[in-house]
Write a protein that binds this DNA or RNA. Structure first.
Lengths: 344, 344
DNA sequence: CGGAAATGCTAAATCGATTTAGTCGCAAGC
DNA sequence: GCTTGCGACTAAATCGATTTAGCATTTCCG
């Protein structure tokens, strides 16, 4: 049982409680009491105390003691917010592991983990500031509060930021302006006259810029304004609901740009339910952040960040920073990828 | 630059190299040299040595030193293989975080991370055996080699296994037999006469049992054999290709059970391309392991593990084990969830 | 010229767990 | 009677980094 607000239980606590030395406790914890000939009665007393006091070993201490002093251990982290989808993150992890495996050898070892923070609460993640958790991190899916935190301190280890532009860090970025523009061009070239852009109500920097560039392009090319439809959240259900409302109100729409694929998926449903056909009545463009955009019905035309390139860049940068400790942060812009499929 | 096979560089190495004490080095590393009045020349020499020797701080040591001795730190891990999709894993993480947040307080803190291993190489994950990485873990997406490893040793901390049955651990399991049976029943009740089961060529324990139970039920109810179609892999493209071959060869099919939703998604495409309608010509049943099964066109009827329940159970068990150190391992079977949608 | 203040650094303790090299009694053996 | 051996345990070193307290010098100022 945990003891309210007392100091954590350590081997010393237990040792004192039982009246033996910490070594004896440790011996029992490691199940070495046979070979080290502890009296069965003592072992039982120690076991009882461990249970009674609710001992939880200190991992940092164990690791320090357990590690082989001949090998260099590197801790890498991929930090992302809970609120964001893990699709891209898991690809990043796989790529990090690939490079790490390649340089793992006799004296070198890597641990890679994904850790999540509540959007806006990155600063609360323990060990970030005092560098006591990672030798290098990739940070992604931050919100402005997190960005402000990062911009305010220069973390003293390798940091690569994915999807945000921060002056003091190495950043890998897509080009939402270009993406929005190209999406608009595709729709307009397909003779779309009443373009609509579907966004979540809470815009991230990326989604805002995509939508903005889309509207600006429409304005520049046609002199008219694109309609903006805001979904409550990021899910297909949110997208479906928002677009259903738009179409149901009799508003025009013959071309749709959804700033995330999940919204596009919801939009598909709303469009079909309204008896419209894709792309004949309404052409749809997504961004390609969904694993299976290719299997939407019809397959979704996508204009968006080139994930392959982004993943590769971000991981390459991380390893570069870790070996070469660069002084100047760099910004890497990854041009959009355009995949024409049947939906526009 | 890393120095080949030498011992890792520590603050001592650097101190000796420069001719100062480790404290001075540490001071510079923490950027406290101003307030502690180190001579600028010394600072520069130390910085140069840090760069030259390629110093990488030991995280375990930093953590041990940095942590507040008043707070109890708990390390939780979710271990999964690279080769598996992260959909369920990310849900597990969110749920773990929820419970952890609920019990985080003054003297208590949790760190939760996802770590991945190569399928079959779980044993190679450092710190598992000597308990130097986690106070508790959820293990999932193991393959038989990993299971053998786990079965062979009883890890001395809280372990919950998701999706595998191991005698010495607390396991949370779906019931693939029941799932396969119910899937068959749904199709047969819909007057399906030529049922087909679509599986990946490399069957996992779960997918094998689902398919097996499906076929057994068909046999028992109708006296005929269900056709088995094997896809090369787990992706929609694999599923589409396999089913296309089946339909193209003129083989019968008026009801399909796909043992993963990604295969079902591919099957949708093959079916539509062949000019058949869902569910009129071919009814389709999936398992509900895809986030957006609800937005397939038509929405996918699913008979599969009840992910909500599984996630909840697995996390509850983890926290239970961590506080109560149970002696007897338990097996928790989660009954299937059936979600009727339009596809069958 | 003497004392105070500033400068520039180091020794040693610390974090928590593990392990090596003993220590201390007591019984058995010669 | 003295050694040997064993049973049951402990003291102290260790892992690597950080921090506190403090020790020499040198400089400043009246």
């Amino acid at each position: 049982m945990a003891r309210g607000e007392k100091r954590p239980v350590t081997v010393h606590t237990i040792a004192k409680h039982v009246g033996v030395s910490p070594s004896a406790v440790s011996t029992v914890l490691a199940n070495r009491h046979e070979e080290r000939r502890l009296a069965p009665a003592t072992v039982e007393k120690i076991r009882a105390a461990v249970r009674e006091l609710g001992y939880v070993p200190n991992i940092a201490a164990r690791r320090l003691r357990a590690h082989d002093p001949e090998v260099h251990h590197h801790e890498l982290g991929i930090l992302t917010s809970f609120e964001a989808p893990v699709f891209l993150v898991s690809r990043v992890l796989r790529q990090v592991q690939r490079l790490a495996d390649a340089r793992t050898g006799a004296g070198r070892r890597y641990s890679i983990s994904i850790e999540m923070f509540h959007a806006g609460r990155l600063r609360a993640m323990p060990g970030l500031l005092n560098a006591s958790r990672f030798n290098g991190v990739i940070v992604t899916n931050t919100v402005p509060e997190d960005d402000a935190f990062l911009a305010g301190t220069t973390l003293p280890y390798a940091v690569v930021v994915l999807g945000r532009r921060l002056p003091n860090y190495c950043c890998v970025l897509d080009t939402p302006g270009e993406i929005g523009r190209k999406a608009a061009e595709i729709l307009l070239k397909g003779d779309c006259r009443s373009p609509v852009v579907l966004t979540p109500a809470l815009l991230t920097q990326s989604t805002a810029e995509r939508a903005e560039a889309f509207c600006a392009t429409v304005r520049a090319e046609t002199g008219r304004e694109a309609a903006r439809v805001a979904a409550l959240g990021f899910t297909p259900a949110n997208g479906a609901e928002a677009l259903r409302a738009h179409l149901g109100a009799g508003r025009r729409c013959d071309g749709l740009y959804a700033v995330t694929d999940s919204l596009a998926l919801g939009a598909y449903q709303a469009i079909k339910d309204a008896g419209r056909r894709i792309p004949k009545d309404i052409a749809v463009v997504g961004v390609g952040d969904h694993e299976h955009a290719d299997f939407f019905d019809p397959p979704l035309t996508c204009v968006g960040p080139s994930n392959d390139t982004i993943v590769e860049q971000v991981v390459t940068q991380l390893f570069y920073l870790m070996t070469h400790r660069r002084v100047k942060p760099v910004e890497i812009f990854v041009p959009p990828s355009v995949v024409r499929r049947a939906s526009a």
